[in-house]
Amino acid sequence: MLRYILLRILQAVPVFFGTTFLIYFMVFAMPGDPILAMFGDKTPNPAVLEALRAQYNLDKPFIVQYLLYIGDIFQGNFGISYSGREVSEILVRTFPVTLKLAVMAVVLELILSISIGLFSGIRKGKFFDNAMLIISLVLMSLPIFVIAFLAQFFVAIQWGWASPTVGGNTAWWNMLLPAIVLALSLYATSMRLMRGSTVETLGNDFVRTAYSKGLGRRRVIPVHVLRNSLIPVVTNSATNFGILIVGATVTEGIFNVPGVGNTLFQAIVRGERPTVVSFVTVLVIFYVFLNILVDLLYAVLDPRIRYV
């Protein structure tokens, strides 16, 4: 167990360097001069320009810039955004908001997809199953921004059940609508996975044996079918994290949620190297740890998995 966790953390080291390098390089290669962009239409004083370039290490070769940046990160210094604020300060402000949104979305998604998937699997080929499959197909073919706009227009503006934008008020009830939108974007694949996995589990010999022992449906379904069917769904939810972040970026943009996705999007548009790279680095680290966590959870669900 200990050995396994250590190995996984060691694996994260090349992932960390690889992703930060790649992101740094991509931002570096973006067209346009970020310092010039800060001045808008005005022509800056060459001396000021040089001073700013030196301050952000932009006058040095790429690889030196990268190494200086990594050195800073290891000292806990995520750099300063071009608007003059500490990147770490922006992170501390936006991260909890996105975390809240993501947790709400994932919880909603899991509750919906597991219960509906299980029931669909049991009622395979019946009306409920077919109806749910059609709904999931519709959801799968709708891009998330379409769902977001539809929800914003109908639920918030037409019917007035929620505020169309979140803004500064990040209480959970105010973020329910974007969370539902985000959940729906993840729901379809999970539900289909759960349904398929339920159908497969139901066909297992041990389910028949459970009935032969004299157990009723009420015992067999939750005890012998649900737990076994959950395993692939749990594994999948870890890999879904990437989709979740993409979805969060779009949803946060549309509903104006002051979270990581929204900030990251604006930073990319403005070519803010320190912000983009730092945010992505944090997301990568988070992703790696989430995966380790899910793998450990996997072992809890399936006793055959033992990490030695």
């Binding site: 010999d205 041990f206 032969s212 012998h224 737990r227 006793p303």
Partner: peptide, 14 residues
Amino acid sequence: FVPQDPMSNLNPVW
């Protein structure tokens, strides 16, 4: 009832 294949007739997760 005693089933055929001992490998597949016990639930692996319990």
